[in-house]
Design a protein around this nucleic acid. Structure first.
Lengths: 263, 263
DNA sequence: CCATCTTTGTGCACGCGTTCACAAAGACAT
DNA sequence: ATGTCTTTGTGAACGCGTGCACAAAGATGG
């Protein structure tokens, strides 16, 4: 794979699978913990255990970055921390704006994990005039009117949307128009963006619903074996049928997301 | 599945792919919005657009649940809302406890999207004695000592961990020991749980890092990779060490709950 | 310098998920 | 009733990700 044996940290970013990219932060965190304990090297087996993944997967992931390990020894922790950080782009400073300073926005602003990873909260923006000037996490909240100015003068390319669902698309459009090309969306909406703009979504409600699905399955299947698929779940279906009416009155309070949090 | 052509709408719960389960909440949200607008039916094409997915994928997803559509017409919105809700287990009430009432925990407690989806916040739990009794989102915070009692007396099976990373595993262990079998983890730690317990992780820092990766790639596509003098691994190691030190500096200006979610 | 031992890097196969493309099913008009 | 038209449901092919298993690489000890 590697052209020659050069330890040249060439940016072969073209060939890194998305699934691998998603795991790099995981490895980085485990490596950072090792680094703090002054551990010089780790084997793929140890690091995989710390990151909660398969060791073969970890080795394959690292192979996409280059040959940074030493056979018979393992990986140099400090060196690997740097390589992954560089690959993820964390060796440079990323100014970030957070739009929507409700409960969640404030939590994000107070989140210490940003600064330690190369992310810097450049501004907090809210549509409520009463919020303007109020300090949150040591930063004065600015009004939405300033959005374009803030983005451009700070060279912000990453935006976080923590507004109610109804305002998300509009905020998104303004962010993109002002130059933002990556968006982390906490609002429970499908954002439409032009090509070249990345959107990632974090949705608490969805995660809970997935858990509920598995929880229901656990409760409904006392039999450890998956046999009798035709009859299994029948009892649950009957029980659920009684709840049909309850499901029907979904209208009321669900109208629009009251809080700032995703639905 | 191909054997025989029984048109029974039986819940073939055993055969629903995980990827499909993860999308069901997405469909449900889009359908709920349609329901509120009193739209009677939708085609797979329309619904897919609203949910931001491919229409073929949507149809295949629904096919795992049964044949709930009408050819030439589409899907009955209300009926589908019920079917998906039932499949996800949202027709029943799920008491949930939130452990760690810092910035994020408070945001979660205030999140209105829970109640409307069958989730009910049964209790808020925090280790800080000063928090005990303080109302958050209309619910009095209880001390960690009460954890087991709360879980058992309320029959809680889903727990949300929003504590600092250092406390997460311990809290997790106690939750599991008390009977919780599904955990939504916001702490940046790999939780170890016994078989039969589901854990889902939400990690803000990871999402941002993935965005940074793509952002960096975008920026580096035209220009020949800014900076990063190759072979300077040693100097970089110093930088990495500095980062480690910064990471260790978890104490924020907010003495209350400085690191609800350290990275 | 050679043998042995450890651990990486990866070729390969398998399974899951996605997408295409189309026949079957039903609505609707005549 | 019959034909036409719309849209579902799904067989089949494809591609990606995962995990196994092992040869190559290098450290270590004699």
């Amino acid at each position: 794979m590697a052209t020659g044996r050069t330890h040249r940290p060439a940016t072969r970013s073209r060939g890194i699978p998305e699934a691998t990219v998603a795991r790099l932060p995981l490895y980085l965190r485990a490596l950072t913990a090792l680094s703090e304990r002054s551990v010089p090297t780790v084997s793929s087996e140890e690091l995989a255990a710390a990151a909660g993944v398969n060791s073969a997967k970890l080795r394959k992931d690292f192979s996409y970055l280059g040959s940074y390990g030493t056979r018979g020894v393992g990986y140099d922790v400090e060196y690997l921390v740097y390589q992954i950080s560089r690959e993820l782009g964390l060796t440079q400073d990323w100014p970030v704006v957070i739009v929507g300073i409700g409960n969640l926005g404030a939590a994000l602003a107070n989140y210490g994990g940003f600064a330690s990873r190369g992310f810097r909260v450049a501004a907090l923006i809210d549509a409520d005039p009463a919020m303007a000037g109020k300090p949150v996490a040591g930063i004065a909240v600015q009004h939405t009117d300033e959005l374009e100015h803030i983005i451009e003068s700070n060279g912000v390319s990453i935006g976080v949307i923590a507004t109610p669902a109804g305002a998300a698309q509009q905020v998104c459009d303004r962010l993109v128009a002002a130059g933002v090309t990556s968006i982390l969306n906490f609002a429970p909406t499908v954002l439409t963006v032009p090509d070249g703009v990345d959107v990632r979504k974090v949705d608490l409600s969805i995660e809970l619903q997935i858990l509920a699905f598995h929880e229901q399955r656990k409760a409904g299947e006392e039999t450890p074996e998956a046999g009798a698929p035709a009859t299994s779940g029948r009892a649950a279906a009957v029980a659920a049928a009684a709840e049909a009416a309850a499901a029907a009155d979904r209208k009321g309070p669900d109208g629009d997301v009251p809080a700032v949090m995703p639905a």
